[in-house]
Amino acid sequence: MPKGSYFLVFLILALIAIGSRGSYTPDFYIVQTYAEDSLEQAAQIELGKHLFYEKALSRDSSVSCATCHKPELAFTDGLPTSIGIFDQVGPRNAPTLTNVGNRPYLLLDGVNPTLEKQTFVPIQEHKEFDFHILLVVDRLNKNELYVNLAKKGFNSEITPYVYSHALAAFERTLVSSHSPYDEYLRGEKSALSASQKRGRDLFFDKLYCGKCHQGTDLTNDALTNNGLYEVYADSGRMRLTEVESDRAVFKVPTLRNVMLTAPYMHDGSIRTIEDVLAHYKSGGSHHKNKGEEIVPFELTNQEERDLVNFFHALTDTYFVQNEAFRLDDLKGQPRK
């Protein structure tokens, strides 16, 4: 195939990807109607879902994506930092994948540009799957179900392209828009209690939280620092850019389902939401890259309860229980 055709194929597939992305509005019903709209897309998502739970992606077949991104914990793992194959402890906290399709860049320091590309990260990481994409593809091509889904979804055997695009297609369906706070935003004023409304006002108006954690996903996707330490063990975005202004700079995380995603921060160093508030109340440590919004403040006990109650209103029970994100045949199977 001459070079021009690779580009053409790439372009067409890219356009399909962009086109399909546009049709995802933050509403979970989309997942179902989508499947009816296009059998091809449905097969891609179905394959992606199987791969997400597939332990054969890891060298010793002990770990899947879902080991660290568990649906019941809004796709986090409840650990300070993740544990990969051979029980190796990784350096970072697993982030939620709630509405991950909305993120303009990925990983805690935003160094990875797309969901498709991100799917190759766990394969290579020694402390995650510690494997090689070609050996992964060889394993997957031995699975009849996957080969059939790849044929339906991509008209291809399983290739690195199919692997990454199927997983990304599934991840884009991880849409949460049914928390009490979402209902409230849609005009259901009774969806929040009086205390939660006061917490909302504190978060967005009286305090400065909403300057960074803004919009319906409660993040502006900025890269900044929130003053956890004077000296960070993790250099953050600087690991890629090598510039001092990126030292210890991390992505502002979404706070959707935040009550399910403890422990908090890039290193999982803060155990509870109350401790997070204590951190911000203190104004944090001095760091040259710290966002200037972050200054000390005081809260009454009632105000603290109001804020925590507001965080509870960000939990989307429908999302974490959504059967569409799970595999039926996983029921009863021990999950690591």
């Binding site: 160094v111 797309t114 991100q118 190759f120 290579q124």
Partner: peptide
């Protein structure tokens, strides 16, 4: 490998 995942 001739590529690295995290910075893609």
């Amino acid at each position: 490998s001739m590529d690295w995942g995290w910075p893609a």
